[in-house]
Write a protein that binds this DNA or RNA. Structure first.
Lengths: 348, 348
DNA sequence: GCTCAGTATAATAGCGCTATTATGTATCTG
DNA sequence: CAGATACATAATAGCGCTATTATACTGAGC
């Protein structure tokens, strides 16, 4: 029943135009040496290096990173999962990450959850299928299955944009409740007593919700102060901000201090106040979160809290690069608190 | 000198926890069948499918996409190269692309040129090293070497956000000179005669430069009309807009119509006019480009031209998916003009 | 009853590279 | 100058998967 020695079977397969073998042949060296040239350039002689470089140039050789990754059992891909790059915060962090990582010839693979936490597991599963050098996740809230997948994979993990108790591996960010706290403190310090937090999409944006929560807690600890939250289900925008202000003055006519979950909201509030003749900051103090590109130039300029999106990306990249360099060493579970900055401007 | 049959040499190599073999063993089937299950589910029997599904579940199997890509000589990666995701325009397109592509289990690999066109070649080279299913580039201006690399690779190419003469393969976008034209026409129609284009980073942002050029050309064809361009080397922001307005009224005191390369600039102009008491639109018409999230809510609301960033991403994804589906068929060289929309609001 | 399709599954040979080991060859020792 | 020691280069065996080919196993058809 078993078959005898099979005849000279030959199957044809699709392929790459020029491979490491071709380079080696042209340089009159072995493929091993060419491979070594890429991985440890110092280990090959000057003459060999030169011949290889010439051959690469002449043949226009592009190495196949999939083959390399397979053989090395690791790829130079970093998988980044953010809610959305449409959000300027994450866009900035992704840009910074990509900038820093590309210096080390690490590639960024990008995925979006669109604030559907439920999708994260599938994205992580796909990410792991590329044997990534590291995985970057947004926030700290992940399903049990996601955690298990990641833990089993032994891949370095960085959680960004949020700090809190259960960290999987490494984390870079800040405490969002502290942001809410700082906003409330600032308004109280400006003598405000009737506080309001205007938020967008708080049911989906966990971090914004924590800012709101921190805000209310801090305010309620002060005597004679009230603090409420009004929110809108749509994503943050100036239009939503304008609408929320309308609702705010309607429901709380004597509001005198407003913190927004986002500078877009705050900008909408400013515009709406201009239209309805509410003096900022005389009658109403307004502050935002984000320090977006328009905030300093607004009229009045917007008091806001600046989250260090760029720094988060840079630090996350640094952690990854360090970890990859000392892959043998014991994995130091790093947590970096980047803090945030309150920028006091005219609107408060 | 040649060596005889080598002794039972055995080298150890790093590996994956659970492979297709393990799944096959557990399902009591061969690896080929499991592979077939992934690639052509209809070709395996119901009982086998069920056994495989159970094994995958039990073992928590994650396929190695690098191995798969290597064997199949193609990966399910789409490489996207944009100037920067910090720019809301490209962020939106990237988000739309990723959304549509992920539905087809295509992964996005992201790179930024940061407006350094010179870097593009290296990014393309690295992109090709992953044997991508497609490559998406921004704009039409690419070095000869980049073009050659891409042409030789036979990979589907989509150029986005700009339309013009030399298209490499497929293209989705619009004509930026037409945008400038439309802006000038609008201001002329509003009775403006002393026109100004305010731009940021025109030396790097080729598309903004073309808008400026189209603007000036259209204006100069009208009788008794003057049109000038003022620009700033920094990236577009409201602060730059405010500065540019200062320079504008200084150098051209009787300017009555301003088009900006970007809504951020226009927003800065609006704020600065509020501060210096220049009535919009009575004394000065202002318009932007982008229809960013704040533009409709601004005071006055901003007349602007909306580029369909989302649509560009969707259409690019559609082209890619269609091309991959009919990979055998002759490659239809598609060019999609998405157009743009002028939104007339209070500022003009 | 026996050939002939048609189907489902299995065996096999790489994809292009890396990492390990082996093999020369030049450079030191005493 | 034998013997040890670097150092540069080459041979080799997979990494985990896909795609091709081969082989069982069914029923049909005559």
């Amino acid at each position: 029943m078993t078959m005898a020695a099979s005849k000279p079977l030959r199957t044809r397969r699709k392929m790459q135009r020029v491979t490491i073998k071709d380079v080696a042949a042209r340089a009159e060296l072995s493929p091993s040496t060419v491979s070594l040239y890429f991985r440890k350039p110092d280990a090959v002689s000057a003459s060999a290096s030169e011949a290889i470089a010439r051959a690469i140039e002449a043949l226009d050789y592009v190495p196949n990173l999939m083959a390399g990754g397979l053989a090395a059992a690791s790829s130079r891909v970093v998988s980044i999962i953010v809610p959305s790059v449409r959000n300027a915060f994450f866009a900035e962090t992704v840009a910074a990450l990509q900038e820093e990582l590309s210096k080390q010839r690490l590639q960024v693979m990008l995925s979006h959850t669109e604030y559907r936490e439920h999708d994260e597991e599938n994205l992580v599963r796909t990410a792991l299928a590329w044997a990534p050098a590291a995985v970057v996740l947004t926030g700290l809230s992940h399903s049990a299955a996601t955690r298990r997948l990641l833990r089993d994979s032994k891949v370095p993990i960085v959680e960004i944009w949020e700090l809190g108790s259960p960290t999987m591996d490494m984390a870079v960010g800040f405490h969002h409740d502290q942001v809410g706290h700082a906003a409330a403190s600032h308004l109280l310090q400006r003598g405000r007593k009737r506080l309001l937090f205007l938020g967008a999409r708080l049911h989906e944006d966990r971090r914004a919700a924590r800012r709101a929560q921190g805000f209310v807690e801090a305010a309620r600890n002060a005597p004679d102060v009230t603090a409420e939250v009004i929110q809108h289900p749509a994503p943050a925008s100036a239009e939503v901000g304008a609408m929320l202000l309308g609702e705010a003055v309607h429901r709380f006519p004597n509001v005198d201090g407003i913190a927004c979950s986002n500078d877009h909201i705050a900008l909408g509030v400013i515009f709406e106040c201009q239209r309805s003749g509410i003096a900022i900051p005389e009658r109403l103090s307004v502050m935002g979160f984000g320090d977006l590109s328009f905030s300093a130039a607004a009229n009045p300029s917007l008091t806001t809290i600046r989250p260090p999106g760029d720094l988060i990306g840079k630090e996350a990249a640094r952690l990854i690069i360090t970890r990859l360099a000392h892959s043998g060493a014991e994995s130091e579970q790093a947590v970096i608190d980047t803090r945030f900055t309150l920028l006091h401007r005219q609107s408060s």
